[in-house]
């Protein structure tokens, strides 16, 4: 492992995007930053800016309004990058999955590498998700994005109950464009 790869693992910078979350997951993410969990000891910083970030945390289900935002944020992140879907809604759409305005989980729009289920997931699970995402970064070389061969990872929750496999990995699906038609009439 070269020095660049090593540094990559030692300094994952995070962008946190709240699609349409109830803020439960977001509070748990913020809890990770507190001295109690202190994720900065892994070199993790919350950057709030896609251009500086390596890891995208998505909470909440994607709806018609914020799908372009999510896509844009993902596109503005320089490779190599990983995406983590946080919580039930972020992973699948959760209890909102058949809501008229919800498309589903983050994987409908961007390729998700790690799912952290839970409603909300505990901070330990989120930290575990980030650490697992870093494993994926090991596969990347010289800054070029190599598709992970392992497929998406699902983090086991703290209580040990393995959730049902999340929605099908949507990497191959073309991302919706600005012109794609919403499926319902109201939107």
């Amino acid at each position: 492992m070269g020095i660049v790869e090593k540094s990559r693992l030692k300094s994952p910078w995070i962008l946190h995007y709240d699609c349409s979350s109830c803020n439960g997951c977001d509070i748990e993410i913020l809890a990770c930053l507190t001295p109690y969990y202190d994720i900065e000891r892994f070199g993790i910083l919350s950057k709030g800016n896609p251009k500086h970030s390596d890891v995208l945390l998505v909470t909440g289900g994607v709806n018609h309004r914020n799908k372009t935002v999510l896509k844009n944020l993902y596109d503005q992140m320089p490779a190599p990058k990983v995406v983590i879907a946080i919580g039930a809604c972020g992973s699948t759409g959760g209890i909102f999955h058949n809501c008229y305005n919800i498309l589903g989980g983050a994987d409908k729009i961007v390729p998700v590498d790690v799912y952290v289920p839970g409603c909300p997931p505990r901070p330990e699970a989120i930290i575990d998700g980030v650490v697992k995402a870093l494993d994926k970064l090991k596969h990347l070389q010289n800054g070029t994005w190599k598709e992970p061969e392992t497929g998406p990872i699902v983090v086991e929750t703290a209580v040990g109950a393995k959730p049902a496999p999340a929605a099908k990995y949507a990497n191959a699906a073309p991302a919706p464009t600005l012109n794609s038609q919403p499926t319902n009439k109201e939107a």
Binding site: I3, V4, E5, K6, S7, R8, K10, S11, W13, P35, D38, E40, R41, F42, G43, D54, P78, A79, P80, N142, G143, T144
Partner: peptide
């Protein structure tokens, strides 16, 4: 807090150089 390693700024910069 425990805090990041002393060489953290160095890792950050090396990582950034490794990115596109």
């Amino acid at each position: 807090r425990v805090g990041p390693p002393i060489l953290q700024p160095f890792y950050d910069v090396v990582k950034l150089f490794g990115k596109s």
